[in-house]
Design a protein around this nucleic acid. Structure first.
Lengths: 223, 223
DNA sequence: ATTAACTAAAGTGTCGACAATATAGTGCAA
DNA sequence: TTGCACTATATTGTCGACACTTTAGTTAAT
């Protein structure tokens, strides 16, 4: 299968995860050049290991590599994040549709429990946990699709990029209670095995997020 | 940007393209093990180059790698191709929607010309060209989405896997004249800038293909 | 006969060195 | 001053060697 659940075993794995973390969280800044020799001393591994890590990041579209020139961290553009959210809308919409079809009754029951615990947090205004809760919610539905390729595309590929944008553009989400209602309706549709509605609601949910982000971008004057 | 238009410059590039070709076209059989040492002699390059090529193939989900064990070509399963077509339906549906929004009038005119030339071929029963024509049709719409990330996911990732299934399961498509009508309606929707309809028609078009393949799989007794 | 420990072989993971390429800087000419 | 050619430097691409892990085969004990 793919490596979204596996822990790092090899040195190249660890370096890949560490480097991705450092880029996503902005410690290595967007658009900057990644020197292989420099990174190999920084992370105390050979250039081969660094090269493998960079190549993996290139496959995730987190860095861009040019032959005989080197790799750069992708630049954060308004276009870029809109592209990502269009893909998210498409793929997670499909994931919700498949989840409505393929999740077991037990898994749906668990999803309802998760929703209730979120409700408590929202009621108690513990918005700090909302971010993690939102991620958890989407994770479960994606896993519920039972489509391994789809799961891998979202977890190994898109999510880290989306997170990179969110972290670095300072998008700790508001939209708490609104998003909660949207989650509730999605779970209802899945519980009713209504594939069509589940997909539609998930797509709207993500569209709202995108619109929300676009407004923030305008406010920040990014382009 | 990504490398779907760029030609190979480095030795690792060439090896990657060659190896992918050999796997997709079945010269290296599905499910077989990829020995680094063996391949390095076969392709007359060092193990480093082979390793890089294999890693790229792993990112495309064409091979699966286990640490300290090695890489295997993915197995062809009914599940696998259904997963792929679900993703295609989702992503190419979105591509059609975006194409209806973002293609220039000139590009749409070109698309109509392409459709007419296909019509001539279908009328003359030159079904030999249908395969390439179909690919060309989808390519243009995907490019028309103007979403670079989406374009790369489809061209660099999904399409080679889909082709691998089609080649190795012997799916040189029938569905010629039926598919032509579907293409025609999709282009009409795009010409009318009807995003909603373009997406819906593209999704149906791909769903039909999937259903068609599923029936063939049943006929072949694959599972 | 079956299982466990051990050993040998093969294959992968990592490393440092060398080769090839791009880039910045210098000098020269117009 | 501007533009071109050339050189020097730095960085990436490729290679072969060594270290570590897995696996298969052998032996020995229950």
């Amino acid at each position: 299968m793919s490596f979204f659940t596996e822990q790092p075993v090899t040195s190249a794995d660890k370096t890949f995860f560490q480097l991705r973390k450092d880029i996503v969280e902005g410690e290595i800044e967007a658009g900057s050049k990644l020197s292989e020799t420099e990174l190999s001393t920084k992370y105390a591994v050979s250039r081969s290991v660094i090269r493998e890590a960079i190549n993996r990041l290139a496959s995730c579209h987190i860095v861009e590599r040019k032959a005989n020139v080197g790799a750069r961290v992708v630049a954060l553009t308004a276009e870029g994040i809109i592209d990502l959210y269009q893909i998210r809308e498409s793929l997670e919409g499909m994931a919700a549709r498949l989840a409505a079809k393929n999740m077991t009754d037990d898994e749906i029951a668990d999803l309802n429990m998760l929703l209730n615990s979120h409700f408590q947090e929202v009621k108690n205004d513990e918005s700090y946990y909302q971010e993690a809760g939102d991620v958890d919610f989407h994770y479960r539905i994606i896993l519920g699709s039972k489509n391994n390729h789809l799961i891998s595309m979202l977890f190994d590929g898109l999510y880290h990029l989306v997170r990179m944008y969110r972290v670095q553009l300072g998008m700790a989400g508001p939209r708490v209670s609104a998003a909660f209602d949207e989650h509730k309706h999605i779970v209802q549709a899945i519980s009713n095995r209504d594939e069509e509605l589940a997909e539609m609601l998930m797509r709207r949910h993500i569209t709202y997020s995108r619109t929300n982000i676009e407004q923030k971008l305008v406010g920040l004057g990014k382009n």
